[in-house]
Simulated scan of single mutants.
Amino acid sequence: MNPPLLPEHGGPDDGPTAAFDFSTNASPLGPPPALLAAVQAADRRLYPDPAYRALRRRLGHDELVLPTAGGAEGIRRLTLAALLAGHREVWVPQPGFGDYALAARALGLAVKPYALPADITPQAPALVWICEPCNPTGASVPAWPALDGHMVIVDRAYEPLRLQGSTPALPPGAWQLVCPNKALGLTGIRAGYAIAPAADAVWAHALSLAPSWVLSAEGVAMLTHWPSDDTQRWLADARATLRDWTAAQRALLADLDWQQRASDTNFWLARPPRPDYALRLRERGIRVRDAASFGLEGWVRVSAQPPAAQQALQQAVLEIEGEDS
């Protein structure tokens, strides 16, 4: 029997809680006060409407909105729906979020990694995953090919955390997977939604594959307040703060001789002077995301954090360098 295919994530481990967590790509500023109040007031005594009719109308495209228990559940369900609709290969960004490939491999589908849009050359009807902006790089692509005849899903989890540039034109007829919890700083609430381009066979499969009550009362409350004007104003202010913190943190890491890659978001890839920094920082209560599972040995993913956290990171790095000198 083959061992199970298990995802590898950053975030909490079985050690002490990190005092400063640079590993998460969620916003450190959330959640918006009004939205948090709505989540806390959610009525847990009753089942939500299993069809989520009011929520789907609130999110727009009500007939084509599919609530999901976060992005990971959406990835699994949509991959199975694609298989049932006849797709046999799955194209995934590399580096990229590992769940795209794991969901495909669990179903026996061929996985085809790509680094650039020009690398996507399906030989048969395929499922193509686009993460825009991409995790773990935070980078964006200027333009995407049409990819006619294939099922394209754009993971837009990090679009609300785009700090520069504009959203590129996406392939026509693409699905969209929306996961607001990262931008809201509420990753513990597993709630998102997909928007289908049409009520086709894939949409029907994805709808029928959903578990009953895929969203909790808290999830419904979060998504109901997601499109509100006050939430969107709060997000605009948060992005302005994150731009300042990102610039300061990049300057700090440059002074410490860390290599850094370009990014359009609040997170990016960095390479410390020595490969053991992730472990040694963790020993000091600071977590960064080791990028080895993305195929990037020696690199880490960091996110912009408040000034006090940046000062703690600087002090810890200087201590490590002092021990090695």
Rank of each mutant, 00 (worst) to 15 (best):
P7K: 07
D14Y: 11
T17D: 05
A19P: 03
D21S: 00
S27E: 01
S27V: 04
L29K: 04
P33V: 09
P33F: 01
A38K: 02
Q40M: 13
A41K: 11
A42R: 07
R44G: 14
R44M: 15
P48G: 06
A51W: 15
R53H: 04
R53K: 03
A54N: 06
L55G: 01
L55A: 09
R58G: 13
D62R: 14
L64I: 05
P67S: 00
T68S: 11
A72G: 01
E73L: 10
R76T: 13
R77C: 04
A81T: 07
A82P: 08
L83C: 06
A85I: 06
Q94C: 14
F97A: 08
P113V: 10
Y114P: 02
P125N: 07
W129Y: 10
E132Y: 02
C134K: 05
P136Q: 01
G138Q: 03
A139Y: 00
V141D: 05
A143Q: 14
W144I: 06
P145E: 10
P145K: 03
G149N: 13
M151V: 15
Q164A: 14
P168H: 02
L170P: 02
L170V: 10
L170E: 13
P171D: 01
P172V: 07
G173E: 12
G173D: 10
N181I: 03
G185F: 00
G188H: 06
I189C: 00
I189K: 00
A194R: 08
W203Y: 12
A206T: 07
P211F: 03
S212Y: 14
V214C: 12
L215T: 10
A217I: 15
G219Q: 03
M222H: 14
L223G: 03
L223K: 08
T224C: 08
Q232L: 15
L235E: 07
R239I: 00
A240H: 14
L242G: 07
L242P: 05
A247R: 04
Q249T: 02
A251P: 01
A254S: 12
D257Q: 06
A262E: 12
S263P: 12
N266W: 12
N266I: 14
P272I: 02
G285F: 05
G285E: 05
G285T: 07
V288N: 06
D290V: 12
A291L: 06
F294E: 02
G298Q: 01
A304W: 11
Q310C: 11
Q310R: 13
A312F: 15
Q314R: 08
D324W: 12
